[in-house]
Design a protein around this nucleic acid. Structure first.
Length: 274
DNA sequence: ACTCGCCTGTCG
DNA sequence: CGACAGGCGAGT
């Protein structure tokens, strides 16, 4: 589910609701996650501390509870929801942080590809793979990152965009959408693009992420994503190719094609994208 | 540079 | 029932 615009939307809504609030207790339903959800550590390191900061690196959320740090990744189906006291928890709620005043922060993740880990705050920056992540496409040098990748990479450009060490935060939806906006086929290699089309792609990446963020992210038909206040994102209506196999291209009306690339579906318009 | 596995859920 | 799903990392 969550790529940069969705994670940033979550960061903003959780921050608005809980920044400065003191955690009073933690509830953990122990299940096997991608990384173990260690209830004992959460109960030892978080209660009694105020949530002082909630930052984002790519798709990772970094929380600071005074001298305690936490890293949350939402995987494919993870959500962070702010709930009123006593609200019945959703299925697959693995972690509940109780804040002063009664509000709760839920970590819900049906598929359990996400994780939520705590550590002393000094350990946050070094937590793998955070040090390896590339620049943030909203604030960093997208053009430079793509140019650097062009020197050494012969992989399809879609794979380059998904590589979090090149740029941090792009997933399959926005990789496909950025390539459509740039008029580039997903299977092209960055090396063969040339500086001009590379620059066009850099612009497209930034624009599609900004547009999606402005819309509050993409909530697909299954409703699997929402901001932490439950608000759906409405970028889905603007998707040009993602999930639209066989549907008419919004620009030229010819059918959108889907092709497996590196094990994941690439959606593109064979006529608008070369 | 691809394939698979990790999980649950939904859709055809 | 199989195919597929916003991610990622360990294997080839």
């Amino acid at each position: 589910m969550p790529e940069l615009p969705e994670v940033e939307t979550v960061r903003r809504t959780v921050s608005a609701a809980l920044l400065g609030c003191r955690a009073e207790g933690v509830g953990v339903a122990t299940v096997k996650m991608r990384l173990p959800l260690d209830g004992e550590r959460w109960r030892r390191l978080v209660p009694g501390r105020r949530l002082e900061a909630l930052d984002r690196r790519g798709k990772y959320l970094l929380a600071r509870f005074e001298d305690t740090g936490a890293v949350v990744h939402l995987g494919m189906s993870g959500r962070l929801l702010v709930a009123a006291p006593g609200q019945p928890v959703l299925p697959h709620t693995h972690l509940v942080v109780h804040f002063e005043g009664g509000r709760e922060l839920w970590f819900v993740d049906p598929r359990r590809f996400g994780f939520a880990v705590v550590m002393p705050v000094e350990g946050l920056k070094a937590f793998p793979p955070l040090p390896e992540l590339g620049p943030d496409p909203l604030t960093g040098d997208v053009e430079g990152a793509l140019a650097a990748a062009a020197c050494r990479q012969r992989a399809p450009v879609r794979s380059i965009l998904l590589d979090q060490r090149v740029l941090a935060g792009i997933g399959n939806i926005y990789a496909c959408e950025a390539l459509f906006r740039a008029g580039i086929r997903p299977q092209r290699s960055v090396a063969e693009l040339g500086a001009r089309r590379r620059a066009r792609l850099a612009v497209a990446v930034r624009e599609v992420l900004q547009d999606a963020l402005a819309a509050g992210g993409t909530t697909l038909a299954d409703g699997g994503f929402s901001a932490s206040d439950g608000q759906a994102g409405y970028f889905a209506v603007q998707l040009a190719v993602y999930g639209r196999e066989g549907a008419p291209c919004r620009r030229c009306s010819r059918p959108v094609r889907r092709q497996a690339l590196g094990g994941r579906s690439a959606y593109y318009c064979p006529s608008c994208q070369r």
